[in-house]
Design a protein around this nucleic acid. Structure first.
Lengths: 209, 209
DNA sequence: TCAGACATGTAAGTCGTTACATGATTCA
DNA sequence: TGAATCATGTAACGACTTACATGTCTGA
């Protein structure tokens, strides 16, 4: 059956910006999409080959620089495939959360074990929130000055895009905000869960006397 | 290198409750963990075999019922492995969200395309929230009466667990609450993103005149 | 009697990561 | 000169899903 091929479309979508090498693509993912997407070379390069075989992208050797370099360009067929994918329904995000599994199963040991897991999780999420907030500040100041931050300009190519071309910047900001909302929700949940578990512990202690 | 084997530990953790067959395990996952975990038969049965080979579980043929049935019991070695896993750090949840990928890439088409994607996403999330709220109500009334709901009792075995044994119920409730918080956060983000995109659209329309 | 639940499994394929392997260029 | 970055790829493995395959028992 026809499967997802998420990497195919991720690459095609990025090639909508400009022709790029595998290395460039990897950087773009890391600079702009790392909060919600990742690609490894071991997946990227074979997929680029498959894309060329399928006629969705073309490869050309770049001889302008001394280095050996393969530049990939999206084809008309590739654009159509990308647009079809955009219009398709998106399947709901995965239903596998290792932390929640551990948390649930920890209850077979003791409530203290569950509480300890939550406390570690809280520390992780707080750290992540701090990172996100830092990126957020960078993006907000960039938006005010209408200048792409250095790191993004280097992968997107334009430092001062004209006429609304800074949509990239807005979309990067919004996807980051998604992360912020998610982390804040997790922190709120952690507090709620800690309160509930501590209350239950109290009650059990009383009942045992 | 030693990889995750999440299914191994999921199964071991569930076998901490009681000995079960592959079919029972599948049901337990579906009844109690489906918001954050899934297992397919094609994964479950081979893993059960591997667990037996590794000495972490034992298999015995159940002859009491007419049906052919394999019951798996966690071994002492299995318990130790489970406890080690619980104490290990949990790696942060995956960084691949197909919706956000689509949303980000859609900006190459038009802001209207991005807005349309958000609206579909919002409808999905609202629906999911309604489902969660329904389960929540069931669990809350169960907690008040201190009785496990029928469906859960059938997989956990006890309808009226004594002395704090209803921790399962609390943990199931809390993991569901995690889902509620997550969906609500997504809805809040969607509203924020829609406002931002519409404002940007306005501005671009004005600039074009 | 027949639908629905019980029950177990295999084969093929997809997706992805990690480790390995190699080498060129640039700049301090 | 040597570290960092640029640059491309393969091999092996791991984890999981889907589709296929097969059969039994229970109760309306």
């Amino acid at each position: 059956m026809a499967r997802k091929r998420k990497t195919w479309y991720a690459i095609l979508g990025l090639l909508m910006w400009k022709p790029m090498s595998g290395y460039d693509l990897k950087k773009m993912v890391e600079m702009a999409l790392s909060h919600f997407w990742s690609e490894s070379y071991g997946n990227l390069f074979p997929t680029l080959g498959a894309l060329v075989d399928a006629g969705l992208a073309s490869r050309r050797e770049d001889t302008t620089s001394g280095r050996r370099r393969h530049v990939y360009t999206i084809t008309v067929k590739g654009r159509r495939a990308f647009e079809r994918w955009l219009a398709e329904p998106t399947d709901p995000p995965q239903t596998r959360n290792e932390f929640l599994l551990k948390f649930f199963l920890s209850s077979r040991r003791s409530l203290d074990e569950s509480i300890a897991l939550l406390e570690v999780y809280r520390a992780q999420q707080r750290e992540r929130l701090a990172e996100y907030k830092e990126s957020e500040a960078v993006l907000e100041s960039a938006a005010r000055s209408r200048q792409m931050p250095e790191s993004l300009a280097s992968v997107f190519g334009t430092r001062r895009p004209g006429r609304g071309g800074e949509n990239e910047l807005l979309l990067i900001y919004l996807t980051l905000r998604h992360g912020v909302h998610a982390v804040e929700a997790r922190l709120a949940w952690i507090d709620e869960a800690l309160r509930a578990l501590r209350a239950r512990k109290q009650r059990q202690r009383k009942e045992r006397t």
